Structures are given as C-alpha cells and as structure tokens.
Amino acid sequence: MKRFIIFCSFILLASCATNYNQSHYSVSDEYELINVGGDALELFPKSDALYASQYIPAKIVEIAWNDAYILAKQMEQTDDPNNPDASLTNQAKENYWIIDLKNNRRFGPYTKKQFDEQKQEFRISEQLQLQNVKTYFTKAKQES
C-alpha cells in the first residue's frame, strides 16, 4: 500500500511539472506580458504602481519594442453572454497602442491608419515591426 501511495504521488507531481505554463514574459526592462487566462495577454508595468494605468488590456496578439517605444496590437474582447467567466474575441475590432518608455505615456487605442500616422509623427523606426506574440514566446523559450 505504501508503494502504491508513493507511486501515485510521483505520477501526480510529474504531471504537474509537465503542465507548467509561464504566466508572464518580459518586454523591455519595465513591462511584462501577463497571461490573464487562456491565450489572453495584457501588458503591465513591472514595478511602479503609479503607472499601472499605462497597461494595455487583453488580448494582445502582436508586439514590438526598442529602448524608446513599445508597440502592440490588441484584439478587442467582449464578455461571453453564455459564460460570465469567459470572454469572446472580436476579430473585427483591432486596436493599436504605443507606449513612450522615456515619458511613461500610453497612446491609443488607434485604428491601423491612426497608428501608422502616429508612428510617423513620433519618428518610430520602420525597422520596429509588430510580430506575433507566439513568435516572441518561441524565441524567449529558446533563450532560456
């Protein structure tokens, strides 16, 4: 009986370890993507609660950053009327955001056209291009 309990405990612990899912990913030195459920990600400041209003709500699907700016594309989510604990992604509603890291200011939500215009106004390099967050996660896992 004792061996059976030890065996079951080992199986339980091993299964918990294989289901590990990272809940946050660093974006620049000051921000991180936080998994708020399923594949819904939000962008939050890491430490300063004063700038908590500078977050970008879920569901972030594309992101890019350098030393001066963070760019993000978000798919708007609405509450699921059939399940109060879930949300639905509105594929037709895309929002774009810019965070000015030097001044700790968030700009958006923008339409694609407004976003492109704002990038030109801020003189954000054309080399800073949004990429799918899954691509970023793959790179982060390979580096760790």
Rank of each mutant, 00 (worst) to 15 (best):
D29A: 04
D29Q: 08
D29E: 14
D29Y: 01
D29G: 01
D29K: 08
E30N: 09
E30M: 08
Y31Q: 04
Y31I: 10
E32Y: 06
E32C: 01
L33V: 03
I34Y: 06
N35G: 03
N35S: 07
V36G: 00
G37L: 15
G37W: 11
D39G: 01
A40Q: 11
E42A: 09
L43K: 06
F44L: 15
P45G: 06
P45V: 09
P45K: 09
K46I: 15
S47D: 09
D48E: 15
D48Q: 10
L50Y: 12
L50Q: 14
L50M: 11
Y51P: 01
S53V: 13
S53E: 15
Y55N: 07
I56M: 07
P57G: 06
P57R: 08
K59I: 11
I60Q: 03
V61H: 02
V61Y: 01
V61W: 02
E62W: 02
I63M: 08
I63N: 01
I63A: 01
A64I: 13
W65S: 11
N66E: 05
N66T: 10
A68H: 09
Y69G: 00
I70K: 05
L71F: 04
K73Y: 03
Q74E: 12
E76V: 13
D79A: 05
D80L: 10
P81T: 15
N82A: 10
P84V: 11
D85A: 06
A86T: 08
S87W: 14
N90P: 00
Q91S: 06
A92D: 13
K93L: 14
K93R: 11
E94H: 10
W97L: 05
W97Q: 03
I98Y: 02
I98P: 01
I99L: 14
I99A: 03
D100S: 05
D100G: 00
D100C: 07
N103F: 11
N103V: 11
N104Y: 12
R105W: 08
R105E: 12
